[in-house]
Computed example of a mutant assay.
Amino acid sequence: MGGVDLSLRLLESLEAVAAEGSMTRAARTLNLTQQAVSSQIRQLERVVGTPLVDRRPTGIELTAAGEVVLKQGAALLSSAQAMVTEARLAATGRPDPLRIAFKAQSTAHFMPAVEAALRQQAPELELRPIASHTLPDEIDALLDGRADAAFLWLPIGDDPRFTIHPLLQEDRWVALPPGHPLESRTTLRIADLADVPVIGPRDGMPPAVVDFWFIDPRPDGTRAVFGPQARTPEECLHLVAAGHGCWIAPASTVTYFAHPRLTWLPLLDAEPNVLALIWPKHNANPLLHLLLTQTRQALNPLPPATT
């Protein structure tokens, strides 16, 4: 490093602060005290020789230098984790299968590329998929040990037991029944759904999660109309096709589930869905970081090198 004394823990703290926009929330994510995180950021600023964060009333933002350190630091963290993973695999031989809870419609567009990359980097690693339908299914699989990690949609409620790595954002779309007055539109806004029942799972879901998916309350303060409950995408699609209401889902759902009777329209003013990879904080399996690295590379591939 040419004399630069740089600890990876300092980069991890900056990454957490950037993701959370708060020292306190970053400390919770890292299982540290707020004072420890602040101290590590100051130490990193001394190493670099310039301020890396701006503390503002609305939260913490990175300076231009902080953005550079964040970007380059992510590559260093990834390389370090890959080194540790490969060393442990070389020492222990074939690892146990990595069990991943997932929803097929949410991951089909990137998981084949992730698995192909993992086979190249760790040919002895086996990914074992565990299909799930709802957030409680995925959380239960993680907590009872049936799954090592899960690809799921945020939010998951206020649950400090997990390490959360956001991966991508998707716009929200609305499935409408045949003959619905809105089906001739090309786009929708939340206000257009004022009297339309919304279909989806609610039982066993944290209230904040239900509020997010059903957009309740609406921006004008009115309450959403709850339609019939359904656990699986297929059940949601059936209920919509039968005229019981609409279903609000991520954009990837539209391309995965074709239905001859439904109209799908983008919901322009809704907060986007965020897909994340999560695992229990007590899970120290280094293969999880390899999975995270390969997933991020599949979603954001590096540009080709110029000659």
Rank of each mutant, 00 (worst) to 15 (best):
2 G>R: 13
3 G>H: 08
4 V>T: 15
5 D>G: 04
8 L>V: 13
11 L>Y: 01
16 A>E: 08
21 G>E: 06
23 M>V: 12
26 A>N: 12
26 A>E: 11
32 L>W: 12
36 A>V: 14
39 S>K: 14
47 V>D: 06
47 V>I: 14
51 P>T: 13
64 A>I: 05
65 A>D: 14
68 V>P: 03
73 G>T: 12
75 A>V: 15
81 Q>H: 14
83 M>Q: 15
84 V>I: 12
86 E>C: 07
97 P>C: 07
98 L>S: 03
101 A>D: 12
101 A>H: 07
114 V>Y: 00
117 A>L: 09
117 A>N: 10
137 D>L: 04
137 D>P: 04
139 I>S: 04
139 I>Q: 06
141 A>Y: 05
142 L>M: 07
150 A>H: 02
151 F>Q: 11
153 W>A: 12
157 G>L: 08
159 D>K: 08
161 R>I: 02
167 L>P: 04
169 Q>P: 05
169 Q>E: 15
170 E>H: 04
170 E>C: 02
170 E>A: 03
172 R>N: 02
175 A>S: 05
177 P>A: 05
177 P>S: 04
179 G>T: 10
182 L>D: 01
183 E>V: 06
187 T>D: 00
189 R>N: 01
196 V>H: 01
198 V>P: 04
199 I>Y: 06
206 P>M: 07
209 V>K: 15
215 I>L: 11
218 R>N: 03
218 R>E: 02
228 P>C: 09
247 W>P: 08
254 V>M: 13
254 V>G: 07
266 P>V: 01
269 D>P: 00
270 A>S: 11
274 V>E: 13
278 I>M: 06
279 W>L: 09
280 P>R: 15
283 N>S: 11
290 L>F: 02
290 L>P: 06
291 L>C: 12
294 Q>D: 02
298 A>K: 05
302 L>D: 14
304 P>F: 01
307 T>E: 14
